[in-house]
Design a protein around this nucleic acid. Sequence first.
DNA 1: TGATCGTAGATATTCGAAAATCTCATATGA
DNA 2: TCATATGAGATTTTCGAATATCTACGATCA
Lengths: 219, 219
Amino acid sequence: MTSLEGRPLSAGDSGYQRIRSDIIFGVLTPSVRLKLDAMKEDYGVSISTLREILNRLTSEGFVVAEGQRGFEVAPISIQNLRELAGLRILLEHHAMAESFRAGDVEWEGRVVSAHHKLAATERTVLSEGDDPELRKRYDGEFHQALISSCGSRELMQTHAVVFDKYFRYALRYRGAETINQHKALLECALKRDIKSARAVLTDHINGCVAHALASWNEG
Amino acid sequence: MTSLEGRPLSAGDSGYQRIRSDIIFGVLTPSVRLKLDAMKEDYGVSISTLREILNRLTSEGFVVAEGQRGFEVAPISIQNLRELAGLRILLEHHAMAESFRAGDVEWEGRVVSAHHKLAATERTVLSEGDDPELRKRYDGEFHQALISSCGSRELMQTHAVVFDKYFRYALRYRGAETINQHKALLECALKRDIKSARAVLTDHINGCVAHALASWNEG
DNA sequence: TGATCGTAGATATTCGAAAATCTCATATGA
DNA sequence: TCATATGAGATTTTCGAATATCTACGATCA
């Protein structure tokens, strides 16, 4: 694989992306022990490189490391989902407000573009089935576009990590409600209606929490 | 060095803490290139271990890694300081509000204890000179205690990283104003007066930004 | 002159194996 | 029986060296 600049991705970087993605999408089950020897085979990298990757993911909170007893995938819990939802609302509300204030027509262009791609993908779920990876990507890019004029790189980075952690719980497609909320957010953005945007976003996220809790109980 | 449980700290962990601390306290200058061979000597660990450490610090934002060109200490800028201050206010306001609401007498005990230690340390600055490392530790522990009943581990962890990054800019001791603000925060906490606490904290942080900018211009 | 290419040295990345540590089953003694 | 010691095997941590990549300087050519 190569990056956008055409530079070949180092073994460490591509392994990092694969493992991170496998955690987010549940390929690597929460709380499972990550045995280095086994993973070495699966991801085609040496133990040292693997440890670099796992150390990065530990800082981000996708992996936990305990003493000299190795690594495991970060556990999930209802409590943690609630915490992430609350944190995401806090960060995204604030970032949206700043972004709505400062956003110019370039920003509107990014928002419209991101929404178009998200909406197109959401429509194909019905005909072609759900592709969680693609859906997450465009969902993330849309919310990122909404806050992209907030003026704070630190805020955006913090938000991005929280969003990715949150997505571990938001795997299943939720249907029309989500589509409408995304559309409403687009309209709020273009009208700079931060108050409505906040309400929609709160519903958006809380709805997702409720949905996750429901499917949690089903199994 | 040994951890609280008496378990010997691994080479990687102690190196991590030393390098992280050296970045926060300016021993490792912002934007300097981190040459692995040289650091290997300084911190007494092998290159592989060093890379694990640097990868962790990259995720946290204390180090930046570019392509296959190695690592460097994260740069500092006025813009970044403003971003961190804004983010800290956002997170800490919210966490204080939750913590004030949920805090019981155990929490009050933690807050009183942390403030006592911080105040004692701040007093010794006059007689025995400033020890930034000690001051940062107790400052951090006090603010951590204030939000320790917020009920969200994710929020506290996110706040802790932002606080540490912020402290890179808040090195110099600021004197009486800080002492009074900490005391005011203690009193607000015991009275559960979140509104005043927010005002004090905003002043506290903005005052620190102004101070940092001033000494920035001096050199 | 200015630009491109090539090379040597410096540096980062990756690896496999040695050393340290942990785990767990088994043995021993109170 | 229960608690504590012991040791073999599994696993992690750490290391030094091999490999790959980058940087900067000088040579070559238009």
